[in-house]
Design a protein around this nucleic acid. Sequence first.
DNA 1: ACTTATTTATACTACACGGTGTAGTTTATT
DNA 2: AATAAACTACACCGTGTAGTATAAATAAGT
Lengths: 203, 203
Amino acid sequence: MNQQKERDKSKKRAIILDGATTVFINMGYELASMDKIAETAKVSKRTVYNHFGSKENLFQVIVADFLAKRQELKTIKYDSEKTLEEQLLAFINAEIFLIDSPKRIGLSRSMTITFLSDLQYARETVSKYPPTFSVFLDWLKEAENDNKINATNLLLAASLFYSLIIGAITWPVLFTNGINKKAVKPMIDEIIAIFLARYGNID
Amino acid sequence: MNQQKERDKSKKRAIILDGATTVFINMGYELASMDKIAETAKVSKRTVYNHFGSKENLFQVIVADFLAKRQELKTIKYDSEKTLEEQLLAFINAEIFLIDSPKRIGLSRSMTITFLSDLQYARETVSKYPPTFSVFLDWLKEAENDNKINATNLLLAASLFYSLIIGAITWPVLFTNGINKKAVKPMIDEIIAIFLARYGNID
DNA sequence: ACTTATTTATACTACACGGTGTAGTTTATT
DNA sequence: AATAAACTACACCGTGTAGTATAAATAAGT
């Protein structure tokens, strides 16, 4: 066989993904054109299509990468040496990290738009990336075993903790141009205080 | 002058708004076409344009109507005769009402999408319709005067109450096809319990 | 140096859609 | 019945854009 080795396409692929991400962030899915993406990535439009086949697929690859990267961050273990406050803060900070750069906010925003426009796609995609609070739920169980937390329904407690974060931080940030860390600080402290007022074990 | 009286266009206008609302709900702003709207309303496309001028304006009129209707609902007064629980429930129910029909959910969804796509338009529009929790803030003040609530920062308390509602109820509903009242009940009770655990005055 | 996978540049197709112009029809008012 | 406002039907224009075709250029592996 005089078949040549397959050449490495990963570099062009990364360049295209980079440019496409920028365009999707700045214009959203609908208004982003493939011409604009090719131009931004400094690549011919044909190459974009050779790599990704369609606009829809290109976007979905970007979203999948983003969500996959998110998942790597989720390793917070219960530690009886640390206070509940600082551990809860770690969970909140993990969520804040996800919306802490213009790039991540923009991507979250575009993603939210397409999810709202296509609930089926949203469900399929999200189901591949388990909810963040499953890690928190494990943490809660251990904290309860350690007699530091007291809740009749841990799942409910966990989901309300994340409700607080989403409602107070994640959701508002989608509508602004970035997170104001100073302004958010008292909000964070209060979230922790509220949670412990209800679920903290007073011995 | 032999100028005739101006005829009543409100009926056609209502018919168009009705059809347009249906289309916007089902397809979202981008995918909704003016041809489809005209067809759905059983009206000629020209008439749609004669009434509303442009697609953008048509949508904005619908959003403005929706938000205006929302505002009419916001009259809950503090009542020292009632328990805090039932009054807090009233505030939660007021929010639930806003997402309680497929029509209102769909409209909220489309609205959210366009808001996320155009933050400037979002800010301008929302600023015309004051935040729901200003009524709640007033309620809180009176409850505090009545020695039933104890909070160092009422604004923070109010906004976290709404964070709970948004994070636990409003936001999830946007991604589903309706609210499951049975499933939401324990969530509601817990929201009230959390709030009172932190801010309820224990005499 | 030769081969071949990959990329580029550019022109093109197909089509959807927002918006307009117009001639003729319907309908409420006098 | 006369009149004019409101509406319809429909053709039409311009534009934006996803995706394709193709021939020439480039760059990597042997």
